[in-house]
Write a protein that binds this DNA or RNA. Structure first.
Lengths: 153, 153
DNA sequence: CTAATCTCTCCAGTCGCTAGAGCTTCAAGG
DNA sequence: CCTTGAAGCTCTAGCGACTGGAGAGATTAG
């Protein structure tokens, strides 16, 4: 049986985050000691590692919950897991293409200012000016933040 | 003078979001009609377009506020604008590299399941299994969400 | 004048955490 | 056995960048 701190150390998921996952139903409520502290099985450890990994891959918690609910399922139900993986990969692909466009534009903007500061700033102008970028770098990105900033680890 | 709805139509920024920007100090409080409705100048329209564009490029509102405060400045102060653009470009670059790794892994996961659903699902196993990926696709991405999901536009 | 559309303010919710307050429990050393 | 300090508990609030709804008032077209 593992304490919550032990779980945290082994998976790299912060302690409050573990409690948060329990609250959201991603982890089953842990068993408790007589003093009300959580104690986890190794199965729970595996589950937390699974969640962690899926989060690293950018899956939203809702999708992760779906994957968990599919555990132990067989047959056609499992197509849903496949669909989630594919959808996430496609989201990521679209996002990479989009970010590539943004990068090129930021290049242009950063390059617009190369040291001579006389008149109004070219960088500021470039930020305001949407013309030079072919026009469609808009980020109509659905879904959540792929690869969330979760603090430094 | 433009109504808030007109501003929204012309920039693609939603009405509540415009009010939100005002609240956050990115837009100066608009003039009001006798009936308390906001009326905007064309300068305000330009400013909103600027914000919109910078947001599309993934700049956090704090950075945008800094850029705005630099408007009209000259000389060395403007280096700050340059630094913001470069920093953002670098964040984006790092992020693209990282997302590329994630994409390859999702490819592996999605590929793990190719139709035959007999035993336990390979996709689920692949999500749980961190081994095959060289190990360091972790997303220790600092900074905010580059290219925010702002709903469908 | 009336009906339809806009706009107003305020509040609550989203997502995935993170941090703090103020308290209790646990394990190890003396 | 007692103390000490780390680790745990619950609860609440906050982040960023919005989004949506309620219920009221303003404006505009016919």
């Amino acid at each position: 049986m593992l304490s919550i701190g032990e779980m945290s150390r082994r998976t790299g998921v912060k302690v409050p985050t573990i409690r948060f996952y329990e609250d959201k139903g991603l982890l089953e409520p842990a068993a408790r000691t007589t003093g009300n502290q959580r104690r986890y099985s190794h199965a729970a450890l595996d589950r937390l590692a699974f969640i962690r990994h899926a989060r690293d891959l950018g899956l939203p918690l809702g999708d992760i919950a779906t994957l968990i609910s599919l555990e132990g399922a067989t047959g056609a139900t499992l197509d849903r897991a496949h669909v989630i993986a594919q959808r996430q990969r496609d989201r990521l692909r679209a996002r990479i293409v989009n970010l590539g466009k943004l990068e090129r534009e930021l290049d242009r903007i950063a390059g617009a200012c190369d040291g001579h500061h006389d008149g109004p700033c070219a960088v500021l102008h470039a930020f305001g000016d949407h013309g030079p970028c072919a026009g469609d770098h808009r980020n109509n990105d659905q879904g959540n933040d792929q690869g969330a900033p979760r603090g430094t680890r």
